[in-house]
Design a protein around this nucleic acid. Structure first.
Ligand SMILES: [Mn+2]
Ligand SMILES: [Mn+2]
Ligand SMILES: [Zn+2]
Ligand SMILES: [Zn+2]
Lengths: 159, 159
DNA sequence: TTACGAATGATAATCTTTCCTAATCCGGTG
DNA sequence: CACCGGATTAGGAAAGATTATCATTCGTAA
């Protein structure tokens, strides 16, 4: 950690962006560090949906000494604090389901439990209603994220 | 691999189920093996959404010598062939998104690329419309799975 | 400026998933 | 039913991904 912040962030529109990021960090109780600024800026300026490792590669252009662990650590924090979204793709840590009836899922943000949801309204969501631009949509899944009953009560007792 | 199939599958309703499974395997071009029968049966009789490792634990009660690699291998095949569903939870292999505008995603089953979708109709899906039974739903995401333009053309050229 | 809790970097430890190879099994044939 | 050839498995190891640890450094509020 030797570079100074201005040179790290570059000259572009980073001044107002940096102030904005500092405010958002304060709001969620995170310290405003150069690493976080750069990670967040790299993700914000990404048009794709990079993985932690890809992001680490991009961030290293600005902060060559940053650790991969720091990137993982802060992405998790950002997701936890709601500063960014995590997109669950497939494979890896997957859960499996042989229930042949059409249904959707509720996933607990706290314990990762999966609950089935049956909804005629959701089943009826047409693939055709998607603005899919060349993408061949084969199926649509509606997923609700939140807190399962068990975790909800636990949450309130924690305070 | 020494136990015989009947003793492995037990006496319950496994006879018709076994025949049904054999047929579905044939349909998708997979051999009907004892390991696959037991893995599939274990998943079918699960009311939860087990991970590969949890399933391995359950399957081992019937086939103590089965390898974890066999479970992973066959779950992937089952998903690929459409015999079961994979449920993407979070963490691990996650992709990240700092796009602050409400939107949904299309995920390519072939290359795992993620494409943004903006849809007022999907945004309007009310949390309240979910039959959520005690689950506190905080947000709803609609995800379309299929083939991205690049993979779609690749697919047709492969044949 | 000081003091202290928070964050980082480096690396070890843990998963999770895939690969590899010899041995075994499956499905069809004679 | 015995046999063959290709498909599949067990097992272990390798690879890949993520998290934990800890000494050191930094950021923040007083
Ligand atoms: Mn389900
Ligand atoms: Mn997105
Ligand atoms: Zn929960
Ligand atoms: Zn694709």
């Amino acid at each position: 950690m030797s570079e100074n912040v201005d040179s790290i962030l570059g000259d572009q529109a980073s001044v107002p962006a940096a102030a904005e990021f500092a405010r958002r960090c304060r709001d969620v109780g995170l310290a405003d560090t150069p690493q976080r600024r750069v990670i967040f800026a790299a993700l914000t300026s990404s048009k794709d949906h990079p993985s932690a490792e890809v992001l680490h590669g991009r961030v290293k252009e600005r902060l060559p000494r940053i650790s991969l662990a720091t990137v993982y650590r802060n992405l998790s924090l950002f997701v936890e604090k709601g500063l960014v979204d995590g997109v669950a793709t497939a494979s890896s840590h997957a859960r499996f389901d042989a229930n042949p009836h059409k249904h959707h899922h509720l996933i607990c943000k706290s314990c990762a439990s999966v609950t089935d949801v049956y909804s005629a309204a959701y089943d009826a969501l047409g693939v055709d209603r998607l603005e899919s631009g060349g993408f061949e949509v084969q199926e649509i899944k509606v997923t609700g994220y939140g807190l399962c009953p068990r975790c909800k009560t636990k949450e309130t007792n924690d305070a």
